[in-house]
Simulated assay, not measured.
Amino acid sequence: MKKVMLLAAGLFLAMSTFAQTANNKTTEKKIEVTGSAEIEITPDEIYFNISLKEYLKGKSKVEITTLEKQLQKAVVDAGIPKENLTVENVSGYNYDYLNKKKNPQEFMASKQFRLKLNKLDKINIILGAVDAEGIESTRITGYSSSKMEEYRKETKIKALQAAKAKAGYMVGAIGEQLGGIIEIQEINTDSYSDVRPMAVNYMAKSADMAGGISDVESKTIKVRAEVRTVFGIK
């Protein structure tokens, strides 16, 4: 009988403790706020796509390998590491495929390259060293920064600081004091501004192209971070 009574007493005590804990949780004062931050940076990594294509010069075909060697040499001569030039895609077409001719002169190959640059001041020199007839198109495809991880960290810290400041003045407005942090959640981090890639049509010795590149160089990237936080109220 004593064992049963002790067991019942222990169960009652456990239930009372649980109820008290649950009650404390429901009455705990807290505030939930979001904080955001945004910094603007100048990119030092620009990705430039160059598409080369074979073509007929009289009755002779200018091979894609010839054009590729011209581009590779131009990149190295401009003082850019050769590793910065990579192949993106290879394709080809045949004008007389319907007639099923197998004349190699009629099959034209094309090759797309991606060139990583820190500035666009040498792009005219590079493209000018490649046979203009063999350049099908050029295009800026993206921007980034070599210090992006540092900028991401900085933006997240500022977002968290903004959340704390907001919680502080909101709690202070009702005569309360802000307590410690209870929860932090990243809502939207590593977000970049919508910088649309700008196409640049290559024209030998074109002043318009130089002007377009100058305009692109002035563009900036906006790195944004947002956090959700929960603070206690003293």
Rank of each mutant, 00 (worst) to 15 (best):
Q161D: 07
V200S: 01
A159P: 10
G175S: 05
I157R: 15
A167D: 04
L178F: 02
E176C: 08
G175W: 01
V171N: 04
L160V: 11
S145W: 01
A167Y: 01
G175P: 05
E154S: 12
Y169F: 13
G179V: 08
I182L: 14
E176T: 12
M198K: 13
S145H: 14
Y192G: 06
Q177H: 08
T155I: 14
R152G: 01
A163W: 02
M170Y: 04
T155N: 06
E183M: 09
T155Q: 08
K156D: 02
K153N: 07
T189N: 10
A204L: 05
I157F: 06
D194M: 09
A165V: 10
M148K: 12
S193H: 07
E150R: 10
G172E: 11
I184G: 02
K147M: 08
Y151R: 14
K153Q: 07
Y192N: 11
N201F: 02
S145I: 05
V171D: 03
K156A: 13
M198T: 13
P197Y: 02
A204K: 03
R196A: 11
K166H: 01
G172T: 07
I187D: 09
L160T: 09
G179H: 06
N188A: 11
G180C: 01
S193N: 15
N188V: 03
A163D: 00
N201S: 08
Y169N: 15
Y192I: 12
M198Q: 11
V200I: 14
A167C: 10
Y169G: 06
K147V: 06
